[in-house]
Design a protein around this nucleic acid. Structure first.
Length: 272
DNA sequence: CTTTACGCCTGACGGC
DNA sequence: TGCCGTCAGGCGTAAA
């Protein structure tokens, strides 16, 4: 499900309910997520205060004084804000109940998501320290992408979806940013010129910003923690538009599998 | 080192 | 109506 804009929307949605709140209770109905939910979770966070909510790549962080809860939504995960006492539904795996009477509930049908505990400063953890810059970080520039890509034969689409290069770009927004930049997704990253990377970076930032402002993209089951769907689907220019006409030229949107992932592009304005 | 293929899971959908 | 194959927004790991 969620890429950076959806995780960011979720983070913003839970801040009013979670920040500065004390964890009163923890319920784990299903331990088996992508990684096992630690059985020590309750003793780690009960009666402790969340003092900040953050996002890094597609991870959500509930930051405590002594460590952080690292939440990943995988493909189908979501968080729900509810009043405590609401009966659980199918795939409601973990509840965090706060002393305010509100509850954060993790639901994930496919269980590709995860909830892990990180001791100490989360940014120093093995889980996060290998990540590249955030797309809005000043270190993320066309020049940087150009330099890091020299000698790489990987496709440009896989390259920008690699979290070690830049954090948080998933399949939908990789497709959209490459379309906006007129770059063929299957082109080798090492064979793209500096001026084209200088075009790509602001286009990545623009599509992510617009998607965040629209509350994300709801294709199947994505919902913000507040229960609101995202409205960016209607702004998608290539994703899921196979066979339809290009919004910019007379071309037709094609679909091709690149690096095992559905890839959409205009056959006319993304030639190389 | 880089690149690719493959699971981990459930549910929705289309074809027969 | 039901069965079966395919596909889905992520990502770590193993293998090449």
């Amino acid at each position: 499900m969620p890429e950076l804009p959806e995780v960011e929307t979720t983070a913003r949605g839970i801040i009013p309910v979670v920040r500065n709140q004390i964890v009163e209770a923890v319920t784990i109905r299903q331990h088996r997520l992508r990684w096992d939910v630690p059985s020590s979770l309750k003793s780690l966070i009960q009666n402790r205060q969340v003092f900040e909510v953050a996002r890094r790549a597609k991870y959500l962080l509930l930051i405590f004084e002594h460590g952080a809860l690292l939440i990943h939504l995988g493909m189908s995960g979501r968080l729900k804000i509810l009043d405590c006492g609401v009966k659980p539904e199918r795939h409601d795996h973990v509840d965090l109940v706060f002393s305010s009477g509100k509850m954060l509930r993790f639901n994930d049908p496919r269980r590709f998501g995860s909830i892990r505990w990180l001791d100490g400063n989360p940014l120093d953890s093995a889980e996060l320290s290998h990540l590249g810059p955030e797309p809005f970080d000043e270190k993320f520039t066309g020049k940087m992408l150009f330099e890091v890509s020299r000698g790489r034969s990987i496709t440009i689409k896989s390259f920008i979806m690699d979290g070690r290069v830049v954090a948080g770009i998933g399949n939908i927004y990789a497709n959209e940013a490459l379309f906006r930049s007129g770059i063929f997704p299957g082109r080798q990253a090492g064979r793209i010129a500096l001026r084209r990377y200088r075009l790509l970076v602001p286009n990545i930032q623009a599509v992510l910003t617009e998607a965040i402002e629209a509350g994300g993209t709801t294709l199947r089951d994505y919902m913000a923690a507040t229960g609101q769907p995202g409205y960016f689907e209607q702004s998608l220019q290539v994703y899921n538009r196979e066979g339809q006409s290009c919004i910019r030229c007379d071309g037709i949107i094609r679909k091709q599998i690149i690096s095992q992932r559905a890839t959409y592009y205009c056959g006319d304005c993304q030639r190389y």
